[in-house]
C-alpha cells in the first residue's frame, strides 16, 4: 500500500502545490474535509498541520489592543484546534510506517526574531503551537516519530521535499543526529530561532 498523507489548514495555493509534489513522490494525498478517506485507508504516514488562516482585523494589532473575544477565539480555533487534530489522528499515525508529523508554520511565530508590534493574534497562536510541537516531539520521538516545522510564509516550493526527506540519524550517537532535534526551518532550510 502506498504512503498516505493528510494536509489540513494550509491555504489553497499551498495545499495544491504540496499535494502535487507529494503525489509525485508516490503518496496518496487527502486534504481538509477528506479526513474520512484517511480513516477508511486505515493508516496515516505523513500528517501536515497547516497554521495558515486569514486573521481577524481585531487581532491584527498589538496584544493589549486586540479584541478580547477575537483573540480568545483564534487561540481556541487554531492553537487548541491543532492539538485536537493531532490527537484525533494519532491512532492512524501509529499504524503508518513513516510516523511523520509536519507543521507548516511561519516566522511570525518566532519570539526571538520578532521586532514588530502587531499581528498579535497570529504571533501568539503560532508561538503556542510551536510549544505544543516541542512537547509532542519530546513525547513521540522516543516512539520513532519524526517531525518537521516549515516556515512557508507563502513559499511552498520546497515543503514536500522537506517533509519527506530524512534528516541525519545515527542510532549509536543520538547527539549526532538531526532527527533528534526539533527546529524551525524556512524554504531555504535555514534555521529560525524559537
Amino acid at each position: 500500500m502506498c504512503k498516505i498523507a493528510y494536509i489540513t489548514g494550509v491555504f489553497p495555493e499551498g495545499t495544491a502545490r504540496i499535494s502535487r509534489d507529494l503525489s509525485a513522490k508516490g503518496y496518496a494525498v487527502y486534504t481538509n474535509d477528506q479526513k474520512d478517506c484517511v480513516w477508511r485507508a486505515g493508516k496515516l504516514d505523513l500528517l501536515v498541520c497547516g497554521l495558515e488562516w486569514d486573521a481577524s482585523p481585531e487581532t491584527a494589532g498589538a496584544p493589549d489592543e486586540a479584541a478580547y473575544d477575537a483573540l480568545l477565539g483564534e487561540y481556541e480555533r487554531y492553537a487548541l484546534g491543532t492539538v485536537q487534530v493531532v490527537h484525533d489522528l494519532l491512532p492512524l499515525l501509529q499504524k503508518g510506517e513513516q510516523k511523520r508529523i509536519a507543521f507548516l508554520t511561519s516566522r511570525d511565530g518566532s519570539n526571538q526574531m520578532c521586532r514588530e508590534t502587531g499581528k498579535s493574534g497570529k504571533r501568539i497562536v503560532l508561538a503556542a503551537v510551536h510549544m505544543f510541537a516541542s512537547l509532542l516531539f519530546n513525547e513521540l520521538r522516543p516512539q520513532g516519530y519524526t517531525m518537521r516545522m516549515y516556515c512557508a510564509d507563502g513559499d511552498y516550493r520546497y515543503a514536500a521535499e522537506y517533509f519527506t526527506r530524512d534528516r541525519s540519524y545515527e542510532p549509536e550517537d543520538p547527539k549526532h543526529s538531526d532527527e533528534n532535534r526539533l527546529v524551525l526551518r524556512d524554504a531555504f532550510s535555514c534555521e529560525i530561532p524559537w
Binding site: G109, N111, R123, I124, A127, H130, F132
Partner: peptide, 8 residues
C-alpha cells in the same frame, strides 16, 4: 502553551 503565548 499559555506561558509561551504570554512570552510572545
Amino acid at each position: 502553551m499559555s506561558k509561551t503565548a504570554l512570552n510572545m
